[in-house]
Amino acid sequence: MPYIDPHIHMVSRTTDDYQRMARAGCVAVTEPAFWAGYDRGTPEAFRDYFRQLTVVEPKRAARFGIDHYCWLCINPKEAEDPGFAREVIQLIPEFLDDPQLSRNVLGIGEIGLNRNTKNELLILEEQIALAVQYNQLILVHTPHLEDKRKGTKLILDALKRNGHIDPGRVLIDHVEEHTIEMVLDAGYWAGMTLYPDTKCTPQRAADLIETYGHERLWVNSAGDWGPSDPLSVPKFQQEMRGRGHAAGVIEKITLTNPSAFLFQSRNGFATQ
């Protein structure tokens, strides 16, 4: 069954992963800008990273018939120094304004919070404002483990404070059982990340679909350099099939829903 992995960090994955994902039915990926496992020393390092996301990865994915899209931002883990973060944010418009470089850019992301600090919140608010200014979709990272519930509430408050946000154009990612309801009730889209040890498993994501329905929800692998599985979306499909769910429901969660959300991008979104 064809699927989209709407959150995966392919810069951290091997070409073999592209091949295995294509064989499993992946037709498109979207790659948010993230923390690479180390703090980058200069803002210029982000310019190189943004070129990797907008130029290099689309070519690498295309070899396997996979469409590659991306999101740009400074991630919350490297946003604790506001001066540094603002220098990175100043780079983003040159990618949004360039017709060639912006062709595969879907929006601003993954912005959000890491340890729920005041500086992280300040930079989150400034990047929300940037997204509004450039009419961009927003992809939000919610914090890890014990910080998630508090951080999700702070993020929803920050989005509301902006006053110009259409919740239907924002996806709040990494939701779990204790945060999904506040996200959906506020009108946002919600992403369930399928990880081996943290966030959701394919089984718990299927439980959330059975509990909260099929609207404004997607699943992703968030595959990166840590414990993660780039084939977790097809494993979710398999879990849903094993429970007896209709093919149409599975396709909605793994293909139609992400397409519908991403199609709202300023540059549109289309799979082959």
């Binding site: 600090t117 998630k148 508090k150 204790h178």
Partner: peptide, 28 residues
């Protein structure tokens, strides 16, 4: 599941002045 996640969550509500030195543990 939800109640366990709630029990393992930071119960505070205000943003921190700075990032803690200790890593996330998975419990408050």
């Amino acid at each position: 599941t939800q109640r366990i996640l709630d029990a393992l969550s930071d119960p505070t509500t205000d943003p921190l002045n700075a990032a803690p030195q200790s890593p996330v543990l998975g419990v408050p």
